[in-house]
């Protein structure tokens, strides 16, 4: 710009925004996300309001889904396959597993679609792209709260009818467990969504991969029912300690190993970190490849 002396440039003003080809990958711009918090909450609202419009049962579907899944599991895995449940009532055992697993699975599958399903929106206007996955986590968290409250209702019913349930102090850890699930779902989800801008194959993998992963997690069986020599396989899965601890905290049966929980927590941090970097890298130019 030496050829055309521009007084404004010489002044060197305080620019509020500089658009450059490459951004620092570690610059996650969380402050900007905070500025757009209203948008995040409106996305959450949109997800809620729009999903059950023009349905008769409306929000009741939030309760019907886990209920039907639990009944199915109770009949098939409890009744027909006769899998052990650590001495817990089968219904409660499967319901706790389903509700917890659904939160993780929904976070993962929905965030993994971030780029592809929002391509038309992202292609027109700028806002921090992270607003979409974060809003998904929040709206799923609300769904989870509703479903978990539903589970607590059933817990109360079973306790009153004489089942021995031993809720204990581990309950206090549940916010941390939920945070870990959200982190794992978000991390895996954004990694997959960053990769799907180039390779659509991953979308198919996610669809059945998540349901297969459920069988590698103690959702329909207790971890204690796995033979000793295969225990390490199931312990590699970062979701295992979360589900087991949850169940132990609320129902009093299951296994809690603080070291395994630490492993899950570390795993979650690594995945979130990787996911954030990949997401950051993809978001600036994904419109050219999607």
């Amino acid at each position: 710009m030496d050829t055309s002396p521009n007084p404004a440039l010489i002044e060197d003003q305080d620019w509020s925004l500089v658009i450059k080809p490459q951004r620092n990958l570690l610059d996650l711009r969380l402050g900007e996300l905070w500025q757009y918090r209203d948008l995040v909450m409106l996305f959450v609202r949109r997800d809620f309001v729009s999903v059950y419009k023009q349905t008769i049962l409306g929000p009741l579907w939030y309760l019907i889904q886990p209920l039907l899944t639990t009944i199915t599991f109770t009949v098939i895995f409890g009744g027909i396959a006769n899998l052990p449940t650590d001495g817990l009532p089968q219904f409660l055992f499967y319901m706790s597993g389903t509700v917890i697993w659904t939160y993780f699975a929904d976070c993962l599958t929905k965030t993994s679609n971030t780029f592809v399903s929002n391509a038309s929106l992202f292609g027109k206007v700028y806002f921090p792209r992270m607003a979409v996955p974060v809003s998904i986590l929040i709206s799923n968290l609300i769904t989870f709260a509703i479903q978990f409250a539903f589970f607590l209702v059933f817990m109360g019913i079973f306790a009153l009818s004489g089942s021995t349930l031993l809720p204990n102090w581990w309950i206090l850890l549940s916010p941390v467990l939920i945070f870990m699930m959200a982190g794992l779902g978000l991390g895996f989800g954004v990694i997959i969504s960053s990769l799907t801008t180039k390779y659509r194959d991953l979308r198919f993998l996610v669809q059945f991969g998540v349901s297969l992963l459920m069988y590698a997690t103690p959702v329909i069986y207790p971890a204690s029912s796995i033979p000793e020599r295969f225990q390490w396989i199931i312990k590699l899965n970062p979701m295992t300690p979360i589900v087991e601890t949850f169940r132990y905290a609320f129902l009093g049966a299951g296994s809690v190993h603080p070291l395994d929980l630490l492993y899950s927590f570390g795993f979650m941090l690594v995945i979130v970190f990787l996911g954030a970097i990949m997401f950051n890298r993809v978001e600036s130019t994904f419109m050219d490849t999607v």
């Binding site: 003003q13 305080d14 620019w15 509020s16 925004l17 500089v18 658009i19 450059k20 080809p21 490459q22 951004r23 038309s120 929106l121 992202f122 292609g123 027109k124 206007v125 700028y126 600036s284 130019t285 419109m287 050219d288």
Partner: peptide, 26 residues
Amino acid sequence: SRVTAPTGGCVKVKGRIASLLEVGTG
């Protein structure tokens, strides 16, 4: 409007930018 990043060069902006690239976006 920061929908895509440039390959080279840079843009310096003062103030908020709003884009109206296609109506009804979102």
